[in-house]
Computed example of a mutant assay.
Amino acid sequence: MIKVGIVGASGYTGGELLRFLHNHSKVEVSTITSRQYAGQPVYKVHPHLRDSDLVFQDINASKIDADLVFTATPHGASMNIVPEILETGSKVIDLSGDYRYDDIETYEKWYDLKHTNPLESVYGLPELYREEIKKANLVANPGCYPTGSILACMPLIKEKLVETVIIDSKSGVSGTGINPSSATHFPNCSDNIMPYNVTTHRHMSEIEQELNKAGPVKVCFTPHLVPVIRGISTTVHTFLKEELKEDVTSEYLEEIYEGFYNGEPFVRILKEGEMPRLSAVRGSNYAHIGCFQIDQHGRVVIVSAIDNLVKGASGQAIHNMNLMFGFDEKESLDFMGMHP
């Protein structure tokens, strides 16, 4: 049994961490923090957690007595508290972008922040870095868009089939966080699809960093806000290298993906005629990948679907925790989505 703390537990990702950890047989959640809701029971903020007796506390993160601390804090805030937590001997899984980058200058450019406390970390995508995560003290949980995008693209890059990927992602409104804005106000986002940061979204740099470790590739990424609560649907468009157009078929692509993700507990490769759906992964830690179509010009289309709050955030964080402490990888995460 390990003790776990959650810094910033009042947000959507904090609520999802608590939902999954509630039934974890080897975890006791000892501390949850929130300045705004200090002294209030957790169900006042997360009404679905009424069976929990946890109460929000406003305490310094370095005072948390835990084996592991999840920092569900905004970008720029984590870098100020993660070093203090690590000094206490606790391991950390950070859900912000502060420790995802190999190059601090890249982080500072895309986040427009000065990084004051760089540390060595492991990028927390289990399908790529399982063994490294097992030995890590600090895991940087991937972004939600990068999770769906990297999983959809990586086999193509590993096999050196393409040189450029164009990624079109559509995210539910929960991806913008718990605090409302004019963009997420119901009359503005309902019955609408809104592209934003069409060529400048910070997650493009994170996707490019990880894909380029498998081989040189140019990444073009555009996100959209769609009027659903949960989920990210990602469509990858790319062109096969000219010399490969005659040899690569849809069946071959499906075989590549099945081989690459063979044995992965939370990735499902869909068969011909099946299409990844947000409803099929909603509330679960699964990623569905499919389509594998090639048109007459050699354009390949791959589609992935994840729940942005689970596989794209809290579920993946718990998967990382299970690896770090030698638990069954699927502990507390082993259930299907909620379609329809």
Score class of each variant (00 low, 15 high):
1 M>H: 04
1 M>Y: 03
22 H>M: 14
23 N>D: 15
37 Y>N: 15
38 A>W: 02
39 G>W: 02
43 Y>C: 08
43 Y>H: 13
45 V>H: 02
45 V>C: 03
48 H>P: 03
51 D>E: 14
54 L>F: 06
56 F>G: 10
58 D>P: 04
63 K>F: 00
65 D>K: 13
67 D>H: 08
68 L>M: 02
77 A>Y: 04
80 N>D: 09
81 I>F: 03
84 E>F: 09
86 L>A: 01
92 V>F: 07
92 V>A: 05
102 D>I: 06
105 E>T: 07
113 L>A: 05
114 K>W: 05
118 P>Q: 03
120 E>G: 07
121 S>L: 09
123 Y>C: 03
133 I>W: 05
138 L>M: 11
142 P>Q: 13
146 P>C: 06
153 C>H: 02
154 M>Y: 08
156 L>S: 06
161 L>A: 05
168 D>C: 02
174 S>Y: 15
175 G>R: 11
175 G>H: 11
176 T>E: 11
176 T>L: 15
178 I>P: 00
181 S>N: 12
188 N>V: 10
191 D>Y: 12
196 Y>T: 02
197 N>M: 11
202 R>I: 15
204 M>Y: 00
204 M>W: 03
206 E>F: 03
213 K>E: 07
215 G>P: 04
215 G>T: 02
225 L>I: 12
225 L>V: 08
228 V>G: 02
228 V>T: 11
232 I>S: 12
249 T>N: 05
255 E>G: 08
264 E>I: 09
277 R>Y: 01
277 R>V: 00
282 R>P: 00
290 G>I: 15
291 C>Q: 14
293 Q>G: 10
296 Q>K: 14
297 H>P: 00
298 G>A: 11
298 G>W: 14
303 V>D: 04
307 D>P: 08
308 N>A: 15
308 N>P: 10
310 V>D: 06
316 Q>R: 14
316 Q>A: 12
316 Q>E: 12
319 H>M: 07
320 N>K: 10
322 N>E: 08
333 L>W: 02
335 F>C: 04
